[in-house]
Amino acid sequence: MIAQNFDYLTPVSLAEAFDLLNDPGAKVMAGGMSLIPMMKLRLAAPERVVDLRHVPGLNKIQQDGAMLRIGAMTTHHELESTPLVRAACPLLAQAAAAIGDVQVRNVGTIGGSIAHADPSADYPAALQALEAEIRIAHRGGERTVLAKDFFQDTFTTALEPNELIVEISVPLEAKCTGASYQKMLQPASGFAIVGIAARVSMDGGKVSMVRVGVTGLGGSSYRAANVEALLVGSEGSAADIGKAAAVVAEGIDANSDIHASAEYRAHLARVYTARALSAAIARAEAQ
């Protein structure tokens, strides 16, 4: 469990980080919770590791109008425990709390996790449901990508080489909106076998807005627009939920491994979609 030799570089500004990342042998590291194990197993052997922890300004959490702006280097623990996040965007706090174990949450970061784009990671489901905006910087510029366009496939994102995630923005939860993240965890790794994030707004006894994000089921996280379409405008009854949840896995080539078959994953996606929607509606109605 010993990595190959590598240079460890700690830029103190984004500009310096971009300089260092010009080197094709360089790999950026945020919390290192995925990179370091892979290096120790020698599945990854970067010549240079560029650690972003000393780049200032990347771990702020701030409210900006109707948005909550989260620095890419914010740790899972900060997201699960910061009162502002818990109040203004409980879904993100729930997803953060569902990650791995305490040690991982103390070190791992949201930017690192989504850049890695593990198909079973917890954040992507929440970010899909939140229609999060991911602000990406490169030398001399920035662009913003929506979560649905950011997560492309297994370990594949819209991020280009020499680009860095600097911030993730999510909307402040509106009134009469409830959210829930529900996952079945794989007992060995704690990753999601499936994880479902749901946000629902209720207006006059009807579902006025619903967003469903899915992780773990296929090669990439996705927003289940078909589920949303079936539920919006309904009363959000158990029957409505059941009908909508039933289509969550449609058209998805579900993953299969020693922990869960494709068939079981698809079934779990339906069950957990219904559970997440029920919990979200109950919360929305409680407001």
Binding site: L41, R42, L43, D118, P119, S120, D153, T154, F155, T156, Q186, S189, F191, G218, G219, D253, N255, S256, D257, I258, H259
Partner: peptide
């Protein structure tokens, strides 16, 4: 080898990709 021993979780989705 190593990928079989430590990458079970990801072999399916990776080969599909």
């Amino acid at each position: 080898g190593t990928i079989a021993a430590v990458g079970q979780r990801l072999i399916d989705s990776t080969s599909k990709l």
